[in-house]
Design a protein around this nucleic acid. Structure first.
Lengths: 396, 396
DNA sequence: ATCGTTTGTCTACTGAATAAACAAAGTTTA
DNA sequence: TAAACTTTGTTTATTCAGTAGACAAACGAT
């Protein structure tokens, strides 16, 4: 096989094969004839590509379907059990691991909560979760096709974690470490980027191609899907919008700046304000997002007011986002999404009064459906995508 | 010729033809053999594509070049005079029109300054400039291949100007109007988007693919080049960063918001502050950017201080931009770029102290080289690109 | 049972890229 | 100066992917 710089016939084939596979994934069960209709490819072309995909175990033929007045079609199914993917959401005080099939269905799930663990301990727990997930993987043609890990920090293009302030990690070569241990393709990605991708693939962002996903947790991170693709910036550090200045001479932030958005609109901001007011949810326990949520559920005026203030400040940043990106959709995700009930109105008030009217057309704001799972599902899906990209080139 | 949805052999040819043309444009004069080496395409393929491009008058053969130990090569030149493009920068108080060849060289230029003109009058002047430029166009195979117009406002994907606040225009179908009058392809685009494209093609952004171009004029507009492509958002309204909130409870803006960036860092902000201090450049004349520049040139402390303040506020917004996009380059363009001397230090102070360190790697900040011409050159280049896209498909 | 329809495969063909041969026009070397 | 390389650009035979259309198998409707 020659490998020149611009070989091109192969690109056409790969592209079409991928198109056929995607079509079947989306519209399964579907006949060859319909794939041809939908894609515009010739019947013969579809037939030959499908037979390759069958050989590769990526498709199954199911029994004959309904006749529409002629020969009954052979229905094709995407073989989502041809392989499995591991996705890990490595949070500040939790680890969430999922085993998904190639379609993103969760087959197995492992959660672990903790507090104030050091690097070594977290790594041990991470390995344990991965081991458990591997052990739970059913037999399949391709086995585990990769491990994805989402982390709350800046990840460069080599998969090195340069800085994860809330974990207090610096310059950790996590991709390399995990790759060496398991001898599998590993992807390490920022949790907001992964979350954005997860929402676009499986969540409320399914039908959109310009999505801004705002991960509101301890801090704020943003994942950008622009023109249908994840935008990662020059080195992979885009979306650090938590440190966008919204108040020039505002509160000092440990990033060195003042008046950063996340000082006003994050979970930490919420808790800090609650502490300042000496709000207590359960006697003897530190106040937390969960505590405030349950207070608000019980109509506690003060707690609701705190959430509304967060919503208001979220609105400020979202206005900036709208002015910057003119997106189709803003998704609010991560833990704070659970408080949508109290955030929504103040947040939208900011928008309605202040955004140039033409920005609003065809725009919507949503709260994560996958809630705490968007990151884990997103990183798992990254591996799947990589697997397809490489595999489709295999027999060429 | 069939036109199915996913026919693909043709795409390959178009792509390669375009690649050959680009290569010759960039490295002219160059031989067929070298094009083959550079692109990786087979010599025969290059020969046949080149002969088509020669037929289409897009290339010229010059005399034989230097031998490198064998037969002397026939050098190929891009025929930049095969057609011409008109680019107009429609400003608040000026009109700049350029006639460029296909490579973006300015062949003719028309400027017009005015103040407080209404819509009808500006349109008359616009037509006059276009007429003059058309009259000055040399004979050529393709003639004028299009008209591009950059405007300081929000333009949707149909070329309608929805809102140009500083012109006080609303919902003007400019593309349609000009198209009907001249029967030529017309492109209407936001001035910052055009400027960004102009800088990427011809200015300081030539070697970068993640560029944020900040047009600092009366207001502030931003053009985004992400992954090498202009990002326009869902409806074409991205980059309205002039209305990014940098001070939650700041000055009221006529956009309905408070604390917008352009209230602190634009030409209008500068002039307003100068007026507040009763600074006078020439007796009896309103203070202006030009007036303040000449004062600063003469070491006027107060004027310099005003510029430095603008620089400081520009830095605040640029920090936000860096955190958002992790770009390779930020370009400061439009009229304020002329004051780079006094802006630069305060602006960089903001960055150095406050930006996460890893964002700075491989990042640079530049001032427009094309200065007032980036928008006009950018829109002219849009037409050229469109022309090539359509023309290369012609003989297929 | 016959006719028309739908499905999926097969065959012949087209169009584009490639490899390799080749002629033309140089340089270098003996 | 002639022979031997070198480089350039064209030409020819081949490969490969997609397409059109023929075709057989399988089905419903009359």
């Amino acid at each position: 096989m020659r490998m020149t710089k611009t070989f091109n016939q192969h690109v056409v084939k790969k592209e079409n094969k991928s198109l056929v596979l995607e079509t079947i994934k989306d519209r399964s069960p579907i006949s060859r004839a319909d794939v041809s209709n939908v894609t515009g490819l010739n019947k013969g072309t579809v037939s030959s590509l499908v037979s390759e995909l069958l050989d590769e175990a990526l498709l199954n033929e199911s029994g004959p379907g309904q006749s529409s007045g002629g020969r009954r079609p052979v229905m094709l199914l995407f073989n989502e059990k041809a392989g499995y993917s591991i996705g890990i959401d490595l949070g500040v005080n939790y680890l969430l691991g999922v085993l998904t099939d190639l379609k993103g269905n969760i087959c197995h799930e492992e959660v672990m909560k903790f507090k104030d663990l050091g690097y070594e301990e977290i790594l041990t727990n991470l390995f344990h979760i991965i081991d458990t997930l591997i052990a739970s993987t059913p037999e399949s043609p391709y086995g585990i096709i990769g491990i994805g890990i989402g982390v709350p920090g800046a990840v460069n293009k080599d998969g090195n974690i340069l800085l994860a302030p809330n974990l207090d990690w610096k310059n950790i070569h996590l991709k390399e470490i995990v790759e060496n241990k398991y001898d599998l393709p590993v992807i390490v990605e920022n949790e907001a980027n992964a979350g954005a991708y997860g929402e676009q693939k499986f969540g409320v962002g399914k039908s959109f191609s310009n999505i801004i996903y705002i991960s509101v947790g301890i801090g704020i991170g943003v994942g950008l899907i622009l023109n249908g693709k994840l935008y990662k910036g020059n080195n992979g550090f885009s979306g650090e919008l938590g440190h966008m200045t919204i108040q020039v001479d505002g509160l000092p932030c440990r990033c060195g700046n003042q008046g950063c958005w996340e000082l006003y609109a994050s979970e930490r901001a919420l808790v800090k304000r609650a502490e300042g007011r000496n709000i207590v949810a359960k006697p003897g326990e530190d106040i937390s997002l969960e505590g405030l949520t349950s207070l608000a559920e019980n109509e506690d005026k003060e707690a609701i007011q705190l959430f509304e203030q967060i919503g208001d400040y979220l609105g400020v940043g979202i206005n900036n986002i709208i002015n910057t990106f003119n997106p189709e959709q803003v998704i609010i995700g991560n833990r704070m999404a659970a408080a949508s009930k109290w955030l929504d109105q103040p947040l939208k008030n900011r928008m309605i009064n202040q955004t140039l009217w033409f920005q609003q057309k065809g725009f919507q704001i949503n709260y994560s459906e996958l809630s705490t799972h968007s990151t884990a599902l997103g990183v798992a899906a990254f591996s799947v995508e990589n697997f397809f990209r490489n595999d489709l080139l295999q027999n060429m």
